[in-house]
Amino acid sequence: MNSVSQRFFAFGALCALIGMAWGIVMSATGDHSLSPAHGHLNLIGFVASSVFGAYYALSPSAAASKLSNVHFWLAVLSVIVIVPGIVMALTEQGETLAKVGSILTILSMLLFFVTVLRNRVGG
């Protein structure tokens, strides 16, 4: 497996572990007020990263491109920014970080879209 794929899978697994622990804490305390942030951590951090990792594992030419590394770090940064940003928005501490995280997240997906268009699976 190529390194960018491995990094996406490792980051996705880390996000899943943190998301699961967070879910257990919410359940134990009965406080689900931050569930939108928890959901974004699981969806963007685990699911999207796992899909990205699978694509790069199946597309060596895409994984070998310099854009794959840019994509990885942009995807990581988007999770690091959007999840606390959503927490801040939910706790009425401002929405700026959530907005910045949203832009980073959509840029990450746009970069993935461009990568998919430029590279065929298996190539």
Score class of each variant (00 low, 15 high):
1 M>Y: 13
103 I>T: 12
51 V>T: 09
105 T>D: 06
7 R>S: 14
27 S>N: 12
21 A>Y: 11
122 G>S: 07
74 L>P: 06
59 S>M: 07
23 G>I: 03
39 G>V: 06
105 T>N: 13
107 L>V: 02
110 L>V: 00
88 M>N: 14
89 A>I: 07
115 T>Y: 00
119 N>K: 01
116 V>I: 09
50 S>R: 00
68 S>M: 06
52 F>L: 10
87 V>M: 15
47 V>T: 12
37 A>D: 02
88 M>S: 13
112 F>S: 00
84 P>F: 07
98 A>T: 02
46 F>C: 10
77 L>R: 04
106 I>K: 00
1 M>N: 08
29 T>P: 02
23 G>D: 10
28 A>K: 04
12 G>I: 05
75 A>G: 14
54 A>K: 07
92 E>K: 14
104 L>M: 10
111 L>W: 00
6 Q>H: 11
74 L>H: 01
23 G>E: 09
4 V>F: 11
88 M>A: 15
1 M>C: 09
111 L>A: 08
8 F>R: 03
61 S>H: 10
38 H>W: 10
24 I>F: 09
84 P>Y: 04
86 I>N: 03
68 S>V: 09
20 M>T: 13
33 S>N: 11
107 L>Q: 01
93 Q>L: 12
71 H>Q: 13
21 A>C: 10
108 S>K: 00
120 R>W: 06
48 A>H: 03
23 G>W: 01
63 A>I: 04
82 I>R: 03
8 F>W: 04
102 S>Y: 06
70 V>R: 14
82 I>H: 03
95 E>H: 11
31 D>C: 07
112 F>Q: 00
75 A>E: 09
64 A>I: 04
56 Y>T: 01
4 V>K: 09
75 A>V: 02
18 I>S: 02
61 S>E: 15
67 L>E: 13
43 L>V: 08
115 T>G: 01
24 I>W: 11
96 T>I: 13
26 M>D: 04
83 V>A: 04
49 S>E: 08
116 V>K: 09
96 T>A: 14
7 R>W: 14
94 G>F: 12
76 V>D: 02
111 L>S: 05
68 S>W: 00
78 S>H: 11
1 M>V: 15
41 L>T: 01
1 M>W: 13
111 L>Q: 02
29 T>Y: 06
63 A>C: 07
50 S>Y: 04
93 Q>T: 08
11 F>C: 07
49 S>Y: 01
60 P>G: 05
82 I>V: 15
89 A>G: 04
81 V>K: 03
13 A>N: 06
51 V>R: 05
87 V>A: 15
95 E>W: 12
54 A>M: 13
100 V>Y: 01
54 A>D: 02
63 A>G: 11
66 K>P: 14
91 T>C: 07
79 V>L: 09
19 G>W: 05
40 H>T: 05
28 A>G: 07
121 V>G: 05
48 A>L: 15
